[in-house]
């Protein structure tokens, strides 16, 4: 009786989720089963045809690879740098509050703005990066950072790392602050080195937070759109084209709604798989706060 009442109470929440999340997902999935070009007036049901096309689409596989590379490097770097920043600002020092606030700044800047700023930094003729490297004698001539296939992805990863390291750092800092100081003292007396304290106390305590950071950041990075769209537009030669950018182009530049939806569904499926993977790891460890 009581449990039935409980279900009754969550109905509004479930309805909201259904309307804003589940309905669009289903709609996109249905759309992915059609061939629909608004401009050409084509609109017919083609079953799984689009999916067959997807599997044989080299550009899709390239986008998937780019997405994976982008996700792997940006998330790894964000975690490592975020940990370093968190450890650094967790120690007591003067101006602590100011530094902590300053660290958050890149996170507070909208991605569109930070991507534009970085686009100027990377600019071949006018960018400060080339200017600095030339002055320090590290390069002989201006490099075309965003226009060469070798550098563009690295540039995109740099922008993402710059923006979201603070987010990782902040979550990790919160995790660091609840570790009792007595544990570190006990470890000192027990003879542990700095590294051993980090490994035996800090890491086990931070594991749940690390998992959360990885989950959030992986999902975010996998869907990356705005930073890359502004920085390189997916170029040069599709070398930075990620799944979201590809889907956007097919949907809104080609206006191929059916196939664009198919790519979108593939992003959704990948994100679902990643989430399920992370959550099952978290669950196996006995809850988020174990």
């Amino acid at each position: 009786m009581e449990s039935r009442f409980g279900y009754l109470l969550i109905i509004p929440a479930l309805l909201t989720i259904a309307v804003v999340a589940i309905y669009p997902i289903i709609d996109v999935f249905i759309l992915s089963l059609y061939e629909r070009f608004l401009t050409l007036g084509i609109d017919e049901f083609t079953g799984l045809n689009n999916y067959l096309k997807l599997v044989n689409d080299a550009r899709f596989w390239n986008a998937l690879k780019n997405t994976a590379v982008f996700t792997f490097f940006s998330v790894s770097l964000e975690l490592i740098l975020g940990m370093a920043v968190a450890l650094f600002i967790n120690r007591p020092f003067s101006l602590q509050g100011l530094i902590r606030a300053a660290v958050l700044l890149p996170w507070a800047v909208p991605t569109v703005v930070s991507a534009k700023i970085w686009a100027w930094i990377f600019n071949t003729d006018l960018g400060i990066l080339n200017y600095a490297l030339l002055n320090f004698g590290l390069i002989d001539a201006d490099l075309n950072w965003l226009g060469s296939t070798g550098y563009a992805m690295a540039a995109a990863i740099t922008v993402d790392v710059w923006k979201t390291t603070p987010f990782a750092a902040l979550l990790l800092l919160a995790g660091l602050q609840v570790i009792p100081d007595d544990l570190y003292k006990a470890a000192s007396v027990d003879g542990a080195s700095r590294w051993q304290k980090f490994r035996h106390i800090t890491i086990p305590h931070l594991k749940p937070v690390i998992m959360i950071v990885l989950l959030f950041r992986t999902l975010d990075a996998f869907r990356v759109f705005d930073a890359i769209y502004i920085l390189t537009g997916g170029g040069p030669a599709n070398s930075t084209e990620t799944l979201s950018v590809y889907a956007y182009k097919i949907l809104f530049q080609t206006l191929d709604f059916g196939y664009g939806s198919t790519i979108a569904v593939s992003v959704f499926a990948a994100v679902m798989l990643i989430s399920i993977g992370y959550i099952s790891i978290l669950k196996r460890r006995g809850g988020l706060l174990s």
């Binding site: 009792p180 007595d182 544990l183 003292k185 006990a186 470890a187 007396v189 035996h200 106390i201 086990p204 305590h205």
Partner: peptide, 13 residues
């Protein structure tokens, strides 16, 4: 030296 803390400070993991 060995230290026994009021909070015991056992390694929880």
């Amino acid at each position: 030296v060995a230290f026994v803390f009021q909070t015991y400070a056992l390694y929880p993991h």
